[in-house]
Nucleic acid binder design. Structure first.
Lengths: 131, 131
DNA sequence: AATAAAAATAGTAATTATTATCGTTTATAG
DNA sequence: CTATAAACGATAATAATTACTATTTTTATT
């Protein structure tokens, strides 16, 4: 996964380009469905492989969502997210990543804390009206 | 899932009793493997069903672990957890659940924030020595 | 431009974790 | 004691993801 040994591919370029146009943090399958419009025979495995590779390299963010399917974000600036328990949509929060949380947690913990994931849950604006 | 319409079962009692003896937050499969010693023909589906039911009722906690398999905790007092990126073990942190996080996040968010999940990652004491 | 090696691909199979189905068993209220 | 609904075991099905493999594509070097 070193940057030097990476070869470009039309498929990966399309995936990155697509993610950059979106602020709603698509899932692997959503990426797949979208890219198929442009590259009809792209394989779902290719999408998964590239999303894994890109997030491994830090070119995109993988957003774990409490047991539900992962979402992906082209905005690599560390920030927190919200997931709607009704429709499943994922939204950005303006809160920046708080390093103090890691420091505080480290105080009484014997191992090494490197980072944290923080996900807020509730109902999005639209679903809050409906329910 | 109302408490009034629940019938006791030997299997569920065994699952709860087992979880209460453990502080390492077993997974569904770990629970299954353990309970089989006592009830050899228990079904894995029964374990999943009861763990879902119990966590739904708030009798145990389901711990989502960033895309990895869920772990379960008989200590229902809200608290945060740590997962080791090397061995996958899950440990308690002494930090209590911080309601202010939800309040802060709500300030600039239009929907309704009800709760959050916060998981710390890094290397546990044992793995920190090895690596 | 031709070529060779590595990387990436499409298509498919396999895996993993979990949920659903269904006929049978069991708990419990009356 | 009995009726009813909950819970069960066994198995099948599903969903998401990963692995495999033969082929294609990229890219550095001639």
């Amino acid at each position: 996964m070193e940057k030097t040994t990476m070869k470009r591919s039309r498929q990966r370029d399309a995936i990155v380009a697509f993610l950059k146009t979106r602020k709603d943090h698509p899932t692997a399958d959503m990426v797949y469905q979208e890219i198929r419009n442009e590259i009809p025979n792209i394989s779902l495995g290719t999408v998964y492989r590239n999303l894994a590779q890109l997030s491994e390299r830090g070119d995109i963010l993988r957003l774990p969502c409490d047991g539900k399917v992962d979402h992906f974000d082209a905005d690599t600036n560390p920030h927190y997210h919200f997931i709607c328990n009704h429709c499943g949509c994922v939204k950005d929060l303006e809160l920046p990543y708080d390093c103090k949380l890691d420091q505080n947690a480290s105080v009484e913990f014997e191992g090494i804390i490197m980072k944290h994931t923080l996900l807020f849950e509730g109902y999005c604006t639209d679903c809050a009206k409906t329910i």
